[in-house]
Amino acid sequence: MDLGLSGRSVLVTGGASGIGRATVEAFLAEGAAVTVLDRAPKPEDLDVTWVRGDVTDEETVRSAIPRELDVVVGCAGISGPMGQDAREIGHADFTRTLEVNLTGQFLLAKHAAPVLAGSTAPAIVFVASDSGFVAAPGMAAYCASKGGVLMLTKALAVDFRSDGIRVNCVCPSIVDTPMARGDLGDAFDELDCPVLRPEDVARSILYLASPASRGVNGTAHVLDFGGLATSTFPA
């Protein structure tokens, strides 16, 4: 399938590693011109425009927006306090998690929208999580932030519809990334469940970002091997 992404101008946050890196490489393979906003330094092997900065800094986000833009992908995110009961989470840790995972996405969309409005097929794709639907112990901050991304996606799809800007999000379960391995440590290799690859998520992002999905707007695309569809009924 021709996704129609060749020559498109794309901005990806969090493109240095994990899902973001796989997404950048996938867009480059399609012939897109890519700009990356990330706190990490630019990898030497990526032929992209690199802006170094934090997605929670509004001026940095504003300055990273290219003059012409067709697609925005918000991949930047953090785990926040993991394995802590909600009663133990500090205010600063909770706030920082929401700032990166939710407010960062809002700032990205806010400042990209005026430029995206000039595209013939503008699209925004956020990386959310299945943790926006279901909760695991010790993940209150992360779950709250990703649940917020789900509703932000819907709200922006409504607000931006008059400019033809589609807004969707992908919601993967566990993905084999440096962040996930850092969170789980040795337990990662002992997981008794299917694990996604970053490339799996990137393919879904590219579809939602492309004209091939022009009728898809305000949705959450779940990649979890059917986990959310599985009943807990003991049968």
Rank of each mutant, 00 (worst) to 15 (best):
169 C>G: 04
114 P>A: 03
128 A>M: 00
109 A>P: 05
96 R>S: 10
224 D>M: 00
217 N>P: 12
210 S>W: 02
201 V>D: 03
164 G>S: 01
138 G>K: 07
192 D>R: 15
140 A>R: 04
133 F>Y: 11
209 A>L: 08
16 A>P: 04
60 T>R: 10
131 S>E: 12
145 S>Q: 04
124 I>L: 08
159 D>P: 07
81 P>S: 05
66 P>I: 08
179 M>Q: 14
39 R>Y: 08
120 T>N: 13
219 T>E: 14
222 V>N: 04
19 I>N: 04
40 A>R: 15
97 T>Y: 02
35 T>V: 11
114 P>V: 02
177 T>D: 05
25 E>R: 14
140 A>V: 13
148 G>W: 00
198 P>F: 10
185 G>T: 03
29 A>M: 06
195 V>N: 06
235 A>N: 14
29 A>E: 14
156 L>W: 13
12 V>W: 03
51 V>I: 11
117 A>C: 03
2 D>K: 15
213 S>F: 09
177 T>H: 07
37 L>N: 07
63 S>R: 14
194 P>F: 10
223 L>V: 00
222 V>M: 04
46 L>C: 10
39 R>V: 14
114 P>Q: 03
138 G>D: 05
40 A>S: 15
13 T>I: 05
3 L>M: 13
38 D>T: 04
167 V>Y: 01
133 F>A: 04
105 Q>A: 12
149 V>Q: 02
60 T>Y: 08
221 H>G: 10
128 A>G: 01
60 T>F: 07
7 G>F: 10
89 I>W: 01
117 A>T: 02
112 A>Q: 09
223 L>E: 00
34 V>G: 11
205 I>S: 00
121 A>H: 12
206 L>Y: 04
201 V>N: 02
181 R>C: 06
129 S>W: 00
95 T>V: 14
